Computed example of a mutant assay.
Amino acid sequence: MIQEQINSLLLDGEFPEVSIERELIETHISWVFLCHTFVYKIKKPITYSFLDFSTLEKRKEYCKREIKLNKRLTDGIYLDVVPIHRLDDHYKIGGNAGTVIDYAVRMLKMDRTKQMDRLLIQKKVTKSHIQNLAHKIAVFHGNTDIIHQKDVLDIQDKFNDLEAEKAYLATQPNGSLYAKIIGSDIKVSDYFLTGNKDLLTARLKAGFVRDCHGDLHSRNIFLLPSPQPFDCIEFNDDYRQIDVLNEVAFLCMDLDAFGEKGLSNLFLEYYNQLFPTIKSLEEHHLFVYYKAYRANVRAKVNSLRAKSAVNEKERTTTLSEVHKYLRLMESYLNTLSL
Score class of each variant (00 low, 15 high):
residue 1 M to C: 04
residue 2 I to D: 12
residue 5 Q to I: 04
residue 6 I to H: 03
residue 6 I to W: 02
residue 7 N to I: 03
residue 13 G to M: 03
residue 19 S to A: 03
residue 20 I to F: 13
residue 24 L to Q: 05
residue 25 I to S: 07
residue 54 S to W: 08
residue 54 S to F: 06
residue 56 L to R: 01
residue 60 K to T: 07
residue 73 L to Y: 04
residue 76 G to K: 08
residue 77 I to V: 15
residue 80 D to Y: 11
residue 82 V to E: 06
residue 82 V to G: 00
residue 88 D to N: 10
residue 89 D to N: 12
residue 92 K to C: 11
residue 95 G to H: 00
residue 96 N to Q: 08
residue 97 A to C: 07
residue 97 A to P: 04
residue 100 V to G: 07
residue 105 V to F: 05
residue 106 R to W: 01
residue 108 L to Q: 15
residue 109 K to S: 09
residue 110 M to L: 12
residue 133 L to A: 11
residue 143 N to C: 11
residue 145 D to T: 15
residue 146 I to A: 12
residue 147 I to Q: 05
residue 148 H to A: 13
residue 149 Q to L: 07
residue 150 K to P: 11
residue 151 D to T: 05
residue 153 L to D: 07
residue 155 I to D: 12
residue 164 A to G: 02
residue 167 A to G: 08
residue 171 T to L: 09
residue 171 T to Q: 14
residue 172 Q to G: 14
residue 173 P to V: 11
residue 174 N to Y: 15
residue 183 G to I: 08
residue 184 S to N: 14
residue 186 I to W: 07
residue 188 V to S: 08
residue 190 D to L: 13
residue 190 D to A: 15
residue 204 L to C: 07
residue 204 L to P: 15
residue 213 H to L: 00
residue 215 D to A: 01
residue 221 I to T: 00
residue 224 L to F: 03
residue 226 S to D: 07
residue 228 Q to L: 06
residue 228 Q to R: 00
residue 231 D to F: 01
residue 235 F to D: 06
residue 248 V to N: 06
residue 251 L to Q: 00
residue 264 S to D: 02
residue 265 N to H: 06
residue 267 F to R: 00
residue 270 Y to M: 01
residue 273 Q to L: 10
residue 281 L to M: 08
residue 285 H to Y: 13
residue 289 Y to K: 13
residue 292 A to V: 06
residue 296 N to F: 07
residue 296 N to D: 04
residue 297 V to N: 05
residue 298 R to T: 06
residue 305 R to T: 02
residue 305 R to A: 14
residue 309 A to L: 03
residue 310 V to Q: 09
residue 318 T to Y: 09
residue 333 L to F: 10
residue 335 T to K: 12
